[in-house]
């Protein structure tokens, strides 16, 4: 109705008066950061020294801390009757696992890479389903008062159930280890995603909603152009919590389910009293968990770049 215009022109034949307005801040960043015209060899050298020093300040403290922890551990477990091996023995006993993570002798006798890969595959599938379902349900209860009233109490009860408590039920339902493990990941990761998405949707500023109303965006356009980008920072908070919980749940789940996977590797090592293998596996679990968390965080930063409202 408003788009009766055949061609786009403002009312009267307007001539644009060139207007003298600076559209750039007077001292642009480029000007300030411009390198000095001539750089002497000395200053380049001193700048290199400065960069090295800054780098060292980042790297040195964690190295010192790790050194202190390993040293203390070595000291505490040095006694011949110690129940846990010292780090030196861990390394010597697991050397085969460390140098060859890719061996595969069939069955569950595989390198650590394959165990972690199997666990990650389960997490990826369960987490992906949780992300889809969580964002969907979060949007629903975030945008509908009725859905909130109906579902919120249910969610509040279900979300406090520990992940492993779902396992027997899912084994009974699926009668197979693989889908049960994936279901446990799904049900663990979905709650923070639902709740954070809903909060993000509820917190969409009135201004953006007014813009959408004036433009008469329909539901689909509103969802894509306003709702998802406005709630994205919240959604990613939920996704990040969710991936951490998934990784927590998979290790515990696999201990019970068996088969290839880092969780069962740990349990199997315990049954065969290979304590050093357990310690190495724990270290890998921690590193992978951290990498998962960082990955989602970086992804979130890329996707939500510039969404901080000002």
């Amino acid at each position: 109705m408003s788009s009766t215009a055949k061609s786009l022109q403002h009312g009267p034949p307007a001539k644009v008066v060139p207007l003298n307005v600076q559209t750039k801040p007077p001292d642009s960043v480029a000007a300030r950061n411009a390198a000095p015209p001539a750089v002497s060899g000395l200053s380049r050298l001193s700048r290199l020294a400065l960069a090295t020093k800054r780098r060292a300040l980042d790297v040195l403290p964690p190295l010192l801390a790790i050194g202190a922890i390993v040293g203390l551990w070595e000291l505490l477990c040095a006694a011949p009757d110690a129940t846990l091996p010292p780090p030196s023995r861990v390394v010597s006993e697991t050397w085969e696992l460390i140098v060859d993570p890719f061996y595969d002798r069939g069955g569950i006798d595989k390198g650590l890479f394959w165990h972690i890969y199997a666990s990650l595959k389960r997490v990826a599938l369960g987490y992906f389903l949780a992300a889809i379902g969580g964002i969907g349900l979060g949007v629903l209860i975030g945008s509908s008062k009725w859905a909130t009233r109906a579902l919120d109490p249910v969610f509040q009860v279900l979300r406090t159930i520990p992940p492993l408590a779902w396992l027997p039920l899912s084994l009974a339902a699926f009668r197979d280890a693989q889908p049960s493990a994936i279901f446990v990941i799904f049900i663990t990761a979905i709650w923070p995603i639902i709740i954070n998405t809903a909060v993000g949707i509820r917190n969409i500023p009135q201004d953006y909603q007014n813009v959408a109303k004036v433009l008469r965006l329909n539901r689909g356009e509103y969802f894509v152009s306003i709702m998802l980008p406005a709630a994205a920072p919240f959604i990613f908070t939920g996704l990040r919590i969710g991936v951490g919980l998934s990784w927590l749940a998979i290790v515990a789940g696999e201990m019970l389910i068996g088969g290839v996977g880092i969780g069962f590797f740990i349990w199997d090592s315990w049954n065969s009293s290979r304590i050093s293998d357990i310690i190495l596996a724990l270290l890998y679990v921690g590193v992978v968990g951290m990498l998962l968390d960082r990955t989602i965080a970086v992804l979130g930063r890329i996707v939500t770049r510039g969404t901080a409202s000002t």
Binding site: D207, N210, V211, R216, I226, A232, R305, G306, T307, T310
Partner: peptide
């Protein structure tokens, strides 16, 4: 009866979409 682009509003706090 409802908002529409024939009555464009310039909001006090600009209301640009930050993304």
């Amino acid at each position: 009866v409802e908002p529409g682009p024939d009555r464009a509003v310039v909001f006090q706090n600009h209301s640009l979409l930050p993304w």
